[in-house]
């Protein structure tokens, strides 16, 4: 169906992406994920300062017909939360890789990135 995948990001099997700039990782969900969820109606608020491990639940996202957990792609401290998407989660449907980012994590262990997929690999993974 042609889901959008952006070069230069890292991807998880649960359809999160992380963009790395220095030791900061910006986290969101992919175009595929937002399409599968449908109209997103709720994103649970995240506490700034939380220390989280890769694979742990970062937050919960909800559409009318589905709800799923969003897992942290990397370990570290949550240093910023996108309050705009908490208020208006439908932004994620419109712009999952841009304005729809969810949180920024201070990456503790860059080695974890090696476990994640690159754009091409993720594209193949979600090819229907």
């Amino acid at each position: 169906m042609g889901y959008k995948v952006i070069e230069g990001l890292y991807y998880t099997k649960n359809d999160e992406w992380v963009k790395v700039e220095g030791d900061i990782g910006t986290v969101g969900i992919t175009d595929y994920a937002q399409d599968k969820l449908g109209d997103i109606v709720y994103l649970e608020d995240i506490e700034k300062g939380n220390k989280i491990k890769a694979g742990e639940t970062l937050t919960t996202i909800e559409s009318v017909k589905a709800a799923s957990d969003i897992y942290a792609p990397v370990s570290g401290e949550v240093i910023e939360v996108n309050s705009e998407v908490i208020k208006e989660p439908s932004i994620i449907n419109k712009d999952p890789y841009g304005k729809g980012w969810i949180a920024k994590i201070k990456i503790e262990n860059p080695d974890e990135l090696k476990e994640l997929m690159k754009a091409e690999e993720y594209s193949n993974y979600r090819k229907e």
Binding site: V41, Y42, E62, S63, V64, K65, A66, A67, D69
Partner: peptide, 11 residues
Amino acid sequence: RAREQDIRREK
């Protein structure tokens, strides 16, 4: 409805 068992199962 996303609170309910048919959507969220064990959660």
